[in-house]
Amino acid sequence: MAASSYASPAEKGWYYLHRFICGVVLLFLIAPILIVIPLSFNSIPFFTYPMPGLSLRWYQEIFTNDVWTSGLRNSLFIGFSASLVATVLGTLAALGLSRPNFPWRPVVMSVLMAPLIVPVIITAVAAYFFYADLGLLNTFTGLILAHATMATPVVVVTVVATLAGYDHSLTRAAAGLGAAPITAFFKVTLPLILPGMISGALFAFFTSFGETVVTLFVAGPEQTTLPKVMFSGMREQISPSIIAAATVLVVFAVVALITVELLRRRSERLRGIR
């Protein structure tokens, strides 16, 4: 939409002002990330431009220092386990929720979405008290369960959205051709919703991978994750290695985002829409 030639001067002025405001807001959204990332290559531990020289020493530190590497290992392990649990439970639930005759859908949906809405600190403190009673505090089991709880809504939302475009007559056709429900699911439904499932699993993984607050409360020293290392580090003195770790995580998130977009396109192509 360009400013049309018959617009009044006030309209034209307003049009350019609007464009300008949008430019500033979009800059505000992206600039903090883009300004901070190059500072992780600074050769000295300061946080201003111009940088005196470039260096990879902070990256070397996070990939060799034990605190960081064991944090990464724990984050990966917990992320994989939590997203596995969340994906299985979430996909099953999404399949049920997407059936046309599912009863009490609004109520069930609002219960399942609640972990996204309830303040994290409440989830964290409640989990802390509860796991303390059960003796699951400072265990991998406790942390994985807590992360899986936080990640399930993301899977449900993603897979339900994929199933919204799913043609249920395909399942009926499979059944009509004599396939048992389980065969129809694995041969017809699953391949079609798989891209959505993988997106959901990725989102679940990143929910767990970036989760900080619940980890601070439920994890012991053995289960220290990357965000926990970063948070405790920032409480004392921010160091460039924290920015280096943050940069790695941002790159991870961007790669995941692109993957999800590609999967979405593939899923639309598979189903022959658009």
């Binding site: 099953l92 929720l97 399942l112 609640a114 309830v118 409640a126 008290f129 709880t149």
Partner: peptide
């Protein structure tokens, strides 16, 4: 029967959320 079957698919997650989320919240 269809309703029950649809609900049975959601039940595992619902129980999971009730035990690991709703129960801790009520305890708090």
């Amino acid at each position: 029967r269809r309703k029950l079957r649809a609900f049975a698919l959601v039940l595992p997650l619902l129980l999971f959320i009730l035990i690991t989320f709703v129960l801790p919240l009520s305890r708090m």
